Simulated scan of single mutants.
Amino acid sequence: MFVRAVYVTGDPAKLEAAIRGLNSEGRELLEERPEYRGADVLVDRDLGILLAVSWWGSEGARRNSDQVMRERRGPMLEPFAGTVAVENFEAAVFRSVQLPRAGGGMRYTRVEFDPADTDLFAETFRSSAVPRLEALPGFARCAVLVDRERGRGMVGSIFVDRASMAASRAGQAEARRADAAKAHVTVVGLEEFEVVHADVRPD
């Protein structure tokens, strides 16, 4: 699958308006597009951050959806959006063991790497991190998203509730250190979000 990630910051007091726009007009627009595979809406209510991720069956389908979404994105996110950043990725790893729930938690790790090590990064996560995550209470889904040309990506791990995500922090910190060294990646960002909506359908 292929992914478009929209990272938005703004006034926390105006966040709910943006969520409503994405969950109504935004979802309708996406569902009209060919090869749409679902979306995630994730928020940090305290800081005023919204992360909207749409999933596509092919790179062409994602690209073809860009124009209509680019034109409508601004009005949907008003008056919340202060800054908007859009990135495109390939889903190198996707593993789901149960459906995420609204109110759950997502840990988001941003990484950089030599583009030549993209496959090493994906395989290290698949062989080392996925089995470990699957054993954690409350684990729902994980994915590795990569930009092969620029050598950057993100790892997302979703838990069915915030308590399960919090309980995993210490163990995952140590695992992150070991896996980053093995995969030759540098961690450049770490955040946690509340799951508002998550309905990815891989096929």
Rank of each mutant, 00 (worst) to 15 (best):
D161R: 12
W56S: 08
R63M: 05
K182D: 03
R110P: 01
V187W: 00
V41L: 14
L51Y: 08
G103F: 10
A167R: 14
D199N: 09
T83P: 04
S65T: 01
G21R: 02
L120W: 02
S128K: 09
D66C: 03
A39G: 03
V43M: 01
S127L: 15
L47M: 12
A102K: 13
I158R: 15
P100H: 01
E31K: 12
G156C: 11
R101K: 13
I49K: 10
F80T: 11
N23S: 14
R126E: 07
Q98K: 11
E134V: 12
D66R: 12
L99Q: 13
F89V: 08
M154K: 03
A102D: 13
M154W: 04
R95P: 02
F139L: 07
F125K: 02
L50A: 15
M69E: 14
R177V: 15
I19N: 13
T124F: 03
K14T: 13
G10Y: 01
R45E: 09
Y36T: 07
E112I: 09
G189P: 12
I19A: 10
V155L: 14
D199W: 08
M165R: 15
M1P: 05
P75E: 12
F193V: 12
A17M: 04
A140C: 07
S54M: 00
E59G: 11
G156T: 14
V6K: 00
L99T: 14
V130P: 00
S127H: 09
A175L: 13
R33G: 10
G21T: 12
P115A: 11
A17D: 06
V195H: 02
N64D: 15
V146I: 09
L133N: 02
L77Y: 05
A61E: 13
A180P: 01
E78D: 12
A183N: 00
A198V: 06
V187C: 01
L51S: 05
F159A: 00
V97T: 14
L77E: 08
L30T: 06
G138C: 04
L190G: 04
L15N: 07
E149D: 13
R176W: 06
L29P: 00
V144Y: 00
R107G: 13
V200P: 01
G104I: 03
G74N: 06
A91F: 03
G138P: 05
V185I: 15
V188C: 07
E90W: 13
A13F: 03
R27V: 01
E112V: 11
T186Q: 10
A122H: 01
P12V: 11
E134Q: 15
L50K: 09
S24H: 06
V93K: 04
R141N: 00
G82S: 11
F139V: 05
D203G: 12
G82N: 10
Q67C: 01
G21F: 06
D147T: 05
R101Q: 10
R141A: 06
Q98C: 13
R126T: 04
G105C: 13
V68Y: 03
L136F: 07
A13H: 05
R162N: 07
E90R: 15
W56P: 07
A143Q: 12
R37N: 04
Y7V: 10
R27M: 07
E192M: 06
E149N: 13
S24Y: 01
A173R: 14
D44M: 07
R148L: 14
S58E: 06
R176V: 08
A175G: 15
A180D: 00
